[in-house]
Design a protein around this nucleic acid. Structure first.
Length: 307
DNA sequence: AAGCCCCTCAACCGCATTGCG
DNA sequence: TCGCAATGCGGTTGAGGGGCT
């Protein structure tokens, strides 16, 4: 017996979303918060299936998404994570909080895959300058796996700490780290989402499940601009909780601290603290390992072994 | 200017997983 | 424990835009 379709196919609209539909969806989520997608089409009158609504929100309308212009560091992270995790785009995306899995997947398929293949043809010219013997590759994988286990263990510990009663209240109040980076304006129809951004303005302010700092949501997809002393303190506390110093500036562009919107989305679909913890751990690992352990022995062409 | 080709990315499809009664 | 509904995820498609001839 076949699975029931997620929605009645009759009368369901398909294809690109119009600005009007976006506005309807955003206003609904503004009032009710994301989730219960099944109810969205009936409650909003949108002729879209629940999955389409969820996807539209998750990949496009959700605040805090950065689109296009992947930095070189992001590129490196994606390449390494893809080698490590395979095509688990959602998992990879959890390490790049501003990127959606769909975006990463598209970027991989359209840019990186080709790039790697090109480089494979030119084996001697490893862009990252790593050796490519198979033995070092095996050692490297083993090190990656051991390191991953350690990180998972640490992440679990973070989680259990976070869930302990005496700490949980602190964590609820923990604010995201803001670096006040402006997100680039989306392209294409996305520019129409300036309207959406305007609609979203004040959303966090009125939202019962809003995050701290939300009152400063600014126009056109930028993150809040106000420096909050408390958030700095919390950021420091957070980093000390993780047990290492601030990431260096090379990381800042791939890990710009999370905007309230991002935090919101993480509350929606990603484990906030744990994901952030793992993110930081992995970032540090990815960019330190190359120096300290020569762990990044995997050349780009070796990544091809994984797909 | 017109036609063709290629690339990008938003969105769809279907399977997997999770949650709940 | 089971079955169903809801949600998540990854692969794939196709519309639209840009570049080239």
């Amino acid at each position: 017996m076949g699975r029931q379709p997620c929605c009645d196919k009759v009368g369901v609209k398909k294809g690109p979303w119009t600005p009007e539909e976006d506005l309807i969806l955003v206003s609904y989520i503004q009032q009710h918060g994301p989730g219960n997608w099944r109810a969205v089409p009936t409650k909003t009158g949108l002729l879209r299936c629940s999955k389409s609504c969820r996807l539209r929100w998750a990949n496009y309308l959700r605040p805090g998404i950065r689109r296009g212009n992947f930095t070189e560091n992001e590129e490196k992270m994606i390449i390494h994570l893809q080698a490590l995790l395979g095509n688990r785009w959602a998992a990879i995306a959890s390490y790049l909080p501003e990127r959606t899995d769909n975006d990463i997947k598209n970027y991989w398929n359209t840019h990186l895959k080709r790039k790697l293949k090109k480089l494979q043809g030119n084996e001697s010219s490893s862009r990252y300058g790593f050796p490519s013997s198979s033995s070092s590759y095996q050692i490297c994988r083993g090190q990656w796996e051991r390191k991953l286990q350690t990180d998972i263990h640490m992440a679990k510990k973070d989680l259990s700490d976070a869930l302990s009663p005496e700490k949980s209240s602190d964590l609820v109040e923990m604010k995201p780290l803001n670096d006040h980076t402006s997100y680039p304006k989306p392209s294409g129809y996305a520019s129409s989402t300036e309207n959406i951004a305007k609609l979203l303005k004040g959303w966090m302010r009125n939202n019962p499940w809003k995050m701290a700092d939300s009152a400063d949501y600014s126009e056109e997809g930028t993150v809040p601009m106000k420096e909050d002393k408390n958030s700095k303190e919390m950021a420091e506390a957070f980093q000390s909780h993780l047990g290492f110093e601030s990431l260096d500036s090379s990381l800042s562009d791939i890990s710009p601290s999370m905007s309230p919107e991002t935090s919101l989305s993480q509350y929606e679909s990603k484990p906030h603290l744990n994901a952030q913890s793992q993110l930081s751990l992995l970032e540090k690992w990815l960019f330190d390992e190359g120096k300290d352990y020569q762990l990044c022995d995997i050349t780009l062409d070796q990544n091809l072994h994984f797909f």
